[in-house]
Amino acid sequence: MKARKINKILSFMAPLLLFFIIWQIVGVLDLMDTTLLSKPTKVFERIIQLIQATNKKTIIEHSAESITRTTIALFLATTIGCSLGILLGLKKNIEETLNPIITFLMPIPGIAWAPLFITWIGFGNPTIISVGTLSAFFPIVYNTSLGIKSINKQIIWSTSIMGANRRKIIKDVILPGSLPHITTGFKLGLARSWRTVIAVEMLAATTGGLGYMVFDAREYLDVTTVYAGIILMAFLYLLVENTLIKELENKTIKRWGMIT
């Protein structure tokens, strides 16, 4: 079991390593303009430098800011989105009214809302978190209501015949039954809010955040820091997806035998 896990990680890391080696060779041999291409070793050095930085924000502080914003946005979106999704899934007439609005607003990219929110509530955290929440909200609502609608009606009927009251049906039948869909919505919400927070940080952040750091580095044509930021973003996301989300799925829907 353990060996398989290590094997899996190795077979994922090896091609990445190969990619970095090729990049390094191109950089060292000066095949392309190195001021624009940088080198993996330089990027790695820069990450160390940015961790130890004393005169400005460290890369860890920037990451922490982005992660905090994403977490708050995701928390808000999940709370509001799940509640509304449950309501929509249970009440058909409310769903019919709100569904067209949701389907219209859902594909609008989160970042498109940013200028509006900047005008309304100014630069900084309020705008970044609001837009992040908004972008995660739609997939969560949509998938929650879809999950509730997808529950086999016969299960609900039989539990109610056996004497379960409405509250119990929601808690013990409807919620667990729609959990695979809710998890999908949550996963999409996480991806969306993370992307949106990074994007809005480029437009509206005043103090920090990975998006801010990368966009700020552009002003000084500091490619190395941009690469460092991009690589860190990918690693952070992969880490969260492969630990937190996997764990969540294992603890809930996998244990209940809903997916294999």
Binding site: M202, G211, I230
Partner: peptide, 8 residues
């Protein structure tokens, strides 16, 4: 995130 490529 796709937007992260833009500064680059």
């Amino acid at each position: 995130p796709t937007i992260a490529w833009v500064p680059l």
